[in-house]
Design a protein around this nucleic acid. Sequence first.
DNA 1: TGTAGCAGTGTAACCGGTTACAGTTAGGCT
DNA 2: AGCCTAACTGTAACCGGTTACACTGCTACA
Lengths: 336, 336
Amino acid sequence: MSSIRDVAQKAKVSVATVSRYLNDPEKVAKKSAEAVEQAIRQLNYKPNLLARNFFKSRSYSILVLVPNIANPFFSRVIRGVEDIGQQKGYAVLLGDTRFSIEREAEYFLRVETRQAEGVIQLSPNFPGDISAYTPSTPFVNACECLHEAPYPTVNIDNTDAAKTVTDYLISIGHRRIGCLLGPDGPTMHSPITRDRLRGYQQALSDASIPLEEQYLIPGDFSLQSGRDASNLFLKCSPRPTAIFCMNDEMAFGLVQGLKSQGLRVPEDMSVAGFDDIEFAQYCDPALTTISQPAEDIGRTAMRTLINILEGGADAVQRHVLPTQLIVRDSTAAPIT
Amino acid sequence: MSSIRDVAQKAKVSVATVSRYLNDPEKVAKKSAEAVEQAIRQLNYKPNLLARNFFKSRSYSILVLVPNIANPFFSRVIRGVEDIGQQKGYAVLLGDTRFSIEREAEYFLRVETRQAEGVIQLSPNFPGDISAYTPSTPFVNACECLHEAPYPTVNIDNTDAAKTVTDYLISIGHRRIGCLLGPDGPTMHSPITRDRLRGYQQALSDASIPLEEQYLIPGDFSLQSGRDASNLFLKCSPRPTAIFCMNDEMAFGLVQGLKSQGLRVPEDMSVAGFDDIEFAQYCDPALTTISQPAEDIGRTAMRTLINILEGGADAVQRHVLPTQLIVRDSTAAPIT
DNA sequence: TGTAGCAGTGTAACCGGTTACAGTTAGGCT
DNA sequence: AGCCTAACTGTAACCGGTTACACTGCTACA
């Protein structure tokens, strides 16, 4: 493997000239540039970025921590991250934490050891010592963010979106509306669940519909938990006429569960989801849901992180991206 | 940021002793070890892996090239890669090539510049100069592999699996079986499509069913292309009674398209998919499909690559992992 | 002719680890 | 006591880039 010194020797110039040619060809005389270029070609020289990055003390890599890469919503976010990374010359290191704090900590070590320059975290926790946080800490939180977080965040207005979809269900005549929650409890802590629940509650309260505890069923964002929930909703008395699910996977599972019990969607029960994953429109019936700009969340998070890394961050930015209610066929007026 | 020299000074030992302590604490006297340990703690020293990796000329990173990270099958493969990577201390760099040769080449540069030590490629092409390939080249091809590829591969027996599913359709009474193809043509080159087509053809031929060209409809593995194909199959005369789709997304789209035209699945048309993505069992009707060990493909690919990197590769390995026919509700005997 | 200014260049230190090699010390053996 | 060995340690070179600084040579202009 040839080094810059081999190139210098072959081109009969100094290593400094070669280095300058590589970084800014304008800086060297035309004659030298040609000699260097030819030497590089002849030796098939490729600069060793390990050496360059070491000297500059920069890795040009960022780490994305994701609870589950197999989740199609997260992979779209990562796509956005990767897109900007590629554009700006940053590599994307993938950290699938599988909801484990230990794995998260292991991955975070890569920042402390300089293998990654910053972190985009798609979960609500800060891996490391939060008291050491300053606005120049290269950390951005996306997707699931705490309101009180002191660091930059990129997400949507979950409360508002949940209220929008619930308002819509009320507007078409539903009064008994169930809610299939995401995980939230002492072990699984999800700000998304709380925010969306708040939106659901606000919509009910605005319409003077009392909250029924029995209509709140816990889930975990998986297809399976949606299917499991169908039995629980059917046991409610009186039975709800519509269900707002906190993500599309659960809505999918719920629809399947309801149909397997002989119910029709939306005639017997309306179902709405959240996220607008690609499969949502291929569900039978096509899913009414909230569309999130997943790739854009990823792109914005990456831009924000790079901005911090390159010293352009004057203040902690908190991005709130727009969502849209997508009405499809899984919701309809209740049959009276 | 403190360096190994600061630690040495504080612990009143040499840098060599600190380095040895870090790499193999057995090598230093107990007394020194304690002094070093204390100094490290006091300074909150973290070794700079940029420096270590530079010296060792190793990045402990590998690059995964994937045509589309948003595809849930690929993300499961990547999950397997990541799992082994984490276990063995390798970082996973993500390269979403979006089916672009240019992006692939850009990413491959990271290997030549030492940012990544090796590549796991989930597409069939070798990014770089194939004539320079040797068995010690750190390259592993998974998922979509050419039979004649000279490098290590990890995949399934696509021909056999496609034959299995087609055999099954024939066994339950179908004679007019359509096939929704993956992309293959002058621009999009897919060995998967060809292998699965071969399996389909073999099954027909074994059952003495003549191949009908009109039953072969091209697709591109997307949900949309499945939906689009439904019209084309319905135009065939005589109409097929079953369709084998080369992946689950297209099967999903096809089922949706057929239903929207008023057909019932499986009564009017049986549909089978391929991959067994998680959504397959939540399709209505639940999809008959071929289950692929996606995570295991990723894990095997990563183990194979690490084996090459660590010098344990004696020969080019070609792994063929088992598949399984999963019969669900989207297929049934044709109504006569 | 003298000199200021500029473009271009080369030398060598530097980044923070690792490790070859040489040196020191302690303890066991004859 | 003298010698040998094992265990441990320290010095300094090294990896391959970048870049501060000093230097050269040329042009422009008084």
